[in-house]
Amino acid sequence: MRGYGPIFYLLEAYRGLRSNSLVNALALGTICMAMLIVGFSLLVFLNLTTAVRAMGDRLEMSVFLKDGLSPSDRDLLLTRLKSESGVRKAALVTKDQALTQLIRDMKGQEKLFQSLGENPLPDSYELTIDPAYAGDGKMEGIAKRIAGFFGVEDVSYGKQGAEMLGKLLRLVTYGGMFLAVLLGVSVVFIISNSVRLALYSRGQEIELMQWIGATRWFVTAPFLVEGILITTLGASLAVGILAGLFHALPGDAMLFLSGPGGFQFLPTGVIVLMIGGCGLLGLAGGLVSVNKFLD
């Protein structure tokens, strides 16, 4: 059996796109707009995630020790703290180190410490907590457990900050997923409609091709390629516009938007996924319409 290769189907698709240029231009514009929203959301999502991660890396808990603990008691406590789930790192801060840090933090008010006499600060272990434990009261659970360990005087952490961080991370993740699904369905809908219009406008030709021995693949393939071409082109345009806008942002605005993790454009992998994913949605939209039309 003879047949044609991908270049033939690409050329046929190009011819089809040109013959329905108005409908396809509208579809291209709509997809570009939808992908601009997706791209913008991804930009916000990824930068926010980076920021949240950076903040999460600073998710800390102070475990204050009772006075007079022997070195072996401290070692035992350190072992227990490190084996606690959610604890990434534990480092000892002696009372002298704590005082030095405090004096450094309160620069210009050193006189306050001159009349202090004996150092009132306790020794402590500074724990770094896994960001996954930021919400749902998990930090509180860890704090309560550690407070019951032998040799622990008190446990302190930024309770509200940790809970807030957890909520923000969830909102960004689930909100982003919802938006992606919504826009993905919209892209399938747009493509299936534009392919359907193309099918109806070329219905006579399709019917004739079937009469003269065209296989289903021969009839279908150009429309599927059209769907893929429109969507990948739309997504590429959207990425281009987004990149243009991003690089046109004034330095001050960029500084304002920068979080703890900086403000970065979409990574190459994400761009490739965005364009490829959009192409797959185009293929799905094309398949929906072509199968409906031919059946």
């Binding site: 059996m1 003879r2 044609y4 006579q204 030709e205 004739l208 009469w211």
Partner: peptide
Amino acid sequence: GFVFQDYKLLPHKTVFENIALALKVVGTP
């Protein structure tokens, strides 16, 4: 081969293109 009463030629294609379509459909080089 099938010949129809209403010819079923594609009006926007030339005579040559109408014939060529039948050859393309079967994968003629």
